[in-house]
Design a protein around this nucleic acid. Structure first.
Lengths: 394, 394
DNA sequence: CGTCTTAAGTAAAGACGTCTTAGAAACCCG
DNA sequence: CGGGTTTCTAAGACGTCTTTACTTAAGACG
């Protein structure tokens, strides 16, 4: 009798971005029902994705391209326009028969805030537009902060970037070291002494903006897939800075692993009689190719012997890669880390060894290259998290 | 003017099973539009899958379980019932308050025909029901047939099995050696001298029944995933018979690879100074652990030395697995092949080596087991292909 | 033994989204 | 200037799910 016509309290999903499209792929193989309005959000992001990847086009072209009918496209575009995500930029230049088309373009009315927590001495971050172009940057020195203090620095840096963003922020994307589950909880990050830290939740709560957190190298693999790759749907990124890690994309999807620990290749045994490692074993890959270890090894080697050290390191990685590349039929490998270590003999040896140890079908189409100079890979990876979860655009 | 009201020729998709649900995942990253009726087929297979995995249940339970509303479920069940896929088996036994529920059960009104082309001397096949239970078997000796002659034998065997099937056949599933793309074309199969053979198409054309072809070990991995596994969404099957091959499931999905050659691990170099291999390299994994090679090696070794040979072979496989398991964070490995080779020292050495060469997070939850006795794995894998493409049930 | 409560299932109407059909607008071409 | 072409929108049809209300059937309870 209090509220006669109000239908009780609407059970609205708790946190949800303005334009959120996918429910961020929580937990693996759950079949979900399809309501009739799901097709709307699907088609909406189909239109958005088409515009995103192919640039401005007319409604008719969108219709042909997407398989939807013209009226539907018109309705979707109108909706996207009223959300401020696209604009009608008027008639196309040049003359053709028929009524001239009005082009529709993705509106850069939104920004992304992205964070890279992979460095050992500082956290860096940036404000990006939808294209991944940097609009602003900020960083914050870590100063040895650990645990909760480090978390506080993440929040501070995020706040700073949010203040910097000229437009509405669609979401926050973070690439962090450690093992991170699909809810954006850092299960374990040794360097930062984090454990079971629900970082995405913290960020979302604090700023009221959807946040997504992924492993730094994993999101770098996403960045390569979407921003730096040719056509490959299967690729691997290997980083040799601050420990050896990898990120894998298989069939266009990031590999998470059964315990969200995919890509942890640093402590694979390479030589059972090798040096002892902090992990308690001997001859780990990490001892041979991690930047710090490799630098130390180079430093205590005479000038003349250094190329051989680099080559030996590259061979070790190549030998580890060979089974992975073969098993997954993966053609594209990207190495990152300090350029002076990654490029040159090391890269050459990795490539040669991987080629020599795999069958022609694999080795022939294999590309191993360095993106060592690409400092923004992890930031772009954070953007990938946001763009796919919020706009379904990637 | 010929046909006034008929809307021209309807562009019906050419081949399509009676109840087909997914369009068989042709080519990877193609965004598709969502029509309103797509939700119908989705929800239909959601209901079917629930019944398939959880056994008979009432419409109300289906509604709670699926998140759909009761009226929708009623409508879907009615539709499935008129298709002969489910039956109402009357009220549940035992008494509870409220109106007694009528249970709905999947009807075994359909059969599957599955073929295993992996043996070198014969093709085997079976008729299965929806549960994967064998209803009938047949096989056909290969007699050295190659190329088109071997293809003809496949068709003969399929015809024989179709004649054997007591009920309507939902589809044909084939596990074949070689590299097979996502249209069911055998791109290359050395033993059978097949190349660019559109086997699925041939079968579909000949019998008018949807057919699916996959690599033998790959589909075996599907079989393990759906019929022999616990909960793992990431697993690997390694076969050491007739060459060394693997099938990988990552995130619940079969890994195909960029050139559909995923799992080809036989010619990874294990020992750069090893024996020469037919592939032109030296020290391939195949030379150490393939059944034929391993048997030969055992035969020319004195009784006392044989365990050491088995152990050495196991170690080699373990060393190859370690990088793969680490990179993918994979916990479950299944070995198949001749039981007397796979089990015992070999399996022990594989496990020990893989454990010793991976970090605790991986090695602790790692299970490596043998399904060497399980002769029907590839047949079941063929069933997986049909069940997921036609019913969306897996 | 009759009434209440609980649960299962169905029927009718409403909401949402796409498609079909039809038409208006704007341009080129001859 | 009229016909052809292309773009885009308007109105209604259709399919699918949901909401709401009702019927059916059993146990619980006094």
């Amino acid at each position: 009798m209090a509220e006669p016509s109000t239908p009780a309290v609407q059970p609205v999903p708790p946190q949800r971005g303005l334009f959120q499209v996918s429910s961020a792929r929580r937990s693996p193989p759950e079949r979900t029902k399809a309501r009739t309005q799901d097709s709307r959000v699907h088609n909406r992001s189909l239109v958005l994705a088409t515009l995103y990847h192919q640039g401005p086009m007319s409604r008719s072209e969108l219709a042909r391209d997407s398989g939807l009918t013209a009226p539907t496209i018109s309705a979707l575009v109108a909706e996207l326009e009223s959300d401020g995500l696209v604009t009608d930029i008027g008639p196309r230049k040049g003359s053709r028969p028929g009524k001239p088309a009005n082009l529709v373009r993705i509106e850069d009315a939104v920004n992304l805030v992205v964070l890279d927590l992979s460095h050992s001495d500082r956290f860096t971050g940036a404000v990006l537009d939808l294209r991944g172009e940097v609009v602003g940057r900020a960083e914050i020195p870590l100063g040895g902060a650990l645990g909760a203090a480090a978390t506080e620095l993440v929040l501070r840096l995020a706040a700073e970037l949010l203040a910097l963003a000229p437009r509405q922020v669609l979401g926050i994307g973070v690439g962090s070291p450690g093992i991170i589950d699909d809810t954006g909880t850092v299960r374990h990050a040794a360097h930062l002494e984090w454990s079971q830290l629900p970082l995405a939740e913290r960020l979302t709560e604090r700023f009221g903006i959807p946040a997504y957190v992924g492993n730094d190298i994993n999101v770098a693999a996403l960045a390569v897939l979407h921003f730096r790759s040719t056509q490959a749907q299967n690729l691997m990124v290997v980083a040799i800075e601050h420990g050896v890690g990898a990120g894998l994309v298989v069939g266009g999807e990031l590999v998470e692993g059964e315990q969200f620990a995919a890509g942890e290749i640093g402590h694979i045994t390479v030589d059972e009689d090798g040096e002892p490692c902090v992990c308690g074993r001997r001859g780990c890959l990490d001892l041979l190719i991690d930047a710090a270890h490799l630098r130390a090894r180079l430093a205590r080697t005479a000038e003349a012997g250094r190329p051989a050290v680099r080559t030996a390191a590259g061979r070790a990685l190549g030998a580890v890669l060979a089974p992975i590349l073969s098993a997954l039929n993966l053609n594209e490998v990207v190495l990152t880390g300090p350029a002076e270590l990654v490029e040159g003999e090391f890269l050459k040896a990795v490539t040669a060894t991987a080629r020599a140890r795999t069958l022609p079908p694999i080795s022939a189409s294999l590309t191993i290259r360095s993106l060592a100079g690409d400092a923004d890979l992890i930031l772009l990876g954070g953007a990938c998290l946001v763009l796919s979860a919020e706009l379904g655009v990637l």
